[in-house]
């Protein structure tokens, strides 16, 4: 029998894939994102949702999802990372928990991207995540 935890995680991943299918299809079809970045985006969302107990919906999380997919594409295509922002750094100065979650999930992505994910990219992902959590 399958481990209930594994089944739940798998179900969550499927829900997330379905929730953002239209958005990610559009971006992938237009080559705005790579297939690998899309897959990593879906996995990242599932990991964060499970770890923080947050529900990602198209209404509330669209900017985060698009940002994640575009940022991971930038890294996948070996393009320049996003320019750091002092405003963003200040915004997340005390959000060590959220930053830690992003950092941990991105360490997994680094293995598949074969590239270190810079602090500026971690910061932008964190500020998007915090916006969703604060809205909740």
């Amino acid at each position: 029998m399958a481990d209930p935890g594994t089944v739940a995680a798998s179900s969550l991943a499927e829900q997330i894939k379905a929730e953002f299918a239209e958005r990610l299809d559009l971006l992938e079809d237009a080559r705005q994102i790579t297939p690998l970045a899309r897959r990593l985006t879906e996995l990242t969302l599932a990991e964060i949702a499970e770890e923080l107990g947050v529900t990602f919906t198209e209404d509330g999380a669209a900017p985060f999802v698009t940002h994640l997919a575009v940022a991971l594409t930038r890294l996948n295509r070996l393009e320049m990372e996003a320019v750091p922002s002092a405003v963003v750094d200040e915004e997340i100065r005390h959000r060590t928990r959220e930053r830690g979650v992003i950092q941990r999930v991105m360490e997994e992505c680094e293995k598949l991207l074969d590239r270190e994910i810079p602090d500026s990219e971690i910061a932008y992902m964190t500020v998007h995540l915090c916006a969703i959590l604060d809205d909740d």
Binding site: L26, L27, D29, A30, Q32, T66, H67, V70, A71, V88
Partner: peptide, 13 residues
């Protein structure tokens, strides 16, 4: 937040 890809990804597509 970064002004780059995310701001215009859907519009570009």
């Amino acid at each position: 937040w970064s002004g780059g890809g995310g701001a215009l990804a859907a519009a570009t597509a």
